[in-house]
């Protein structure tokens, strides 16, 4: 099915939830989301056609990755662990340590064209996007419907805009934790409720704050390492060395390994790194609470899966 041009986007949100802010120049449309979804799963967005966005952002892992870090398409070592993408449309800061990237449109260009590290390796290959995608008649139609004001132009800007539109639809608000917050007390098992209580009394919720459990601020929990100085890399301020953004915790139980460099192989290890005086007995309830943040519907929602058809034909 090809979404009609100009068809308005209808957010599918629980009552009382406001949709994420959308940049004025990239209004949502069904055509744009459909295109963005196809592009998200298309490895032609990488230099040698081997890595799609979905190559690292796997739906069953909350759109995170099972690796500590991931090498780029040319074998360059990865630098940071792949974050999950649940509710990214609402996140004010989109990378672990670059406060200048505040829109999904800007963020989408980082893995494609970035060189620190090289991930998808498209720097210098910008003309390849229109060449590769434009060779496909269905893509030409999809871009024309998604970007009528730009004449269906295929370039890094429209590719990033479509990816951002799709990513804004990656909404995860139906975990047991959400149902509990909505008043369904039975949605959380007793142990998870105990963990939720500990999460608050131990102070976890000071930084892992709000609906998506992140204050989007930067903190240092371990000594700075020369291989990745975190926020200082962008600010050049010594006091920012080793500071990284508080990760949101949506679906955290399936997004491991954890930590900005994926060095925590278990959630318990990640918890213990917070320099809290935790009684041993607090770990199981905390883990139960973190498990309650898993939204199974989000992990299997066919609207987010790799499309198997486009323009009425099988892919």
């Amino acid at each position: 099915m090809l979404a009609a041009a100009g068809e308005p986007w209808r957010w599918d949100l629980p009552a009382g939830v406001e949709p994420p802010l959308v940049p004025a120049g990239n209004a949502m449309s069904a055509a744009k989301v459909e295109l963005g979804r196809r592009l998200f799963y298309d490895a032609d967005l990488s230099a040698n056609g081997t890595l799609a966005c979905a190559g690292c952002h796997e739906q069953k892992r909350g759109f995170a990755d099972g690796n500590a870090m991931r090498p780029g398409v040319h074998g360059d070592p990865g630098r940071r662990n792949v974050p999950g993408l649940a509710n990214v449309g609402w996140l004010p800061r989109l990378t672990a340590a670059d406060p200048t990237i505040t829109s999904l449109e800007a963020q989408a260009l980082v893995p494609m064209f970035g060189e620190h590290p090289v991930e998808m390796g498209m720097k210098g290959l910008e003309a390849e996007l229109p060449r590769r995608l434009g060779a496909d008649a269905c893509y030409r139609r999809m871009f024309a419907r998604a970007f009528p004001e730009q004449g269906g132009r295929i370039d890094p800007g429209t590719v990033a805009a479509a990816l951002a539109a799709f990513e804004r639809t990656l909404i995860s608000l139906d975990s047991p934790y959400d149902r509990f917050r909505a008043g369904h007390i039975d949605a959380l098992a007793a142990e998870a409720q105990q963990g939720f209580g500990l999460f608050k009394t131990l102070g976890c919720s000071v930084c892992h704050a709000g609906r998506d459990l992140s204050d989007a601020q930067y903190y240092q929990l371990k000594p700075a390492e020369p291989r990745d100085t975190g926020l200082a890399e962008k600010t050049s301020r010594a006091e920012d060395a080793g500071r990284f953004r508080t990760p949101q915790l949506r679906n955290v139980a399936v997004t491991g390994p954890w930590w900005h460099d994926g060095s925590a192989r278990t959630l318990e290890d990640a918890i213990q790194r917070h320099r809290l005086a935790l009684p041993t007995a607090s770990i199981p309830p905390l883990l139960a609470f973190l498990g309650s943040l898993t939204d199974q519907g989000f992990l299997t929602d066919p609207r987010f899966a790799m499309p198997d058809r486009a323009c009425g034909r099988k892919l």
Binding site: D42, A43, N48, T50, A54, A135, M306
Partner: peptide
């Protein structure tokens, strides 16, 4: 394939 390659792969 779960991760099909692009046209240039």
């Amino acid at each position: 394939p779960a991760k099909p390659g692009g046209s240039v792969s």
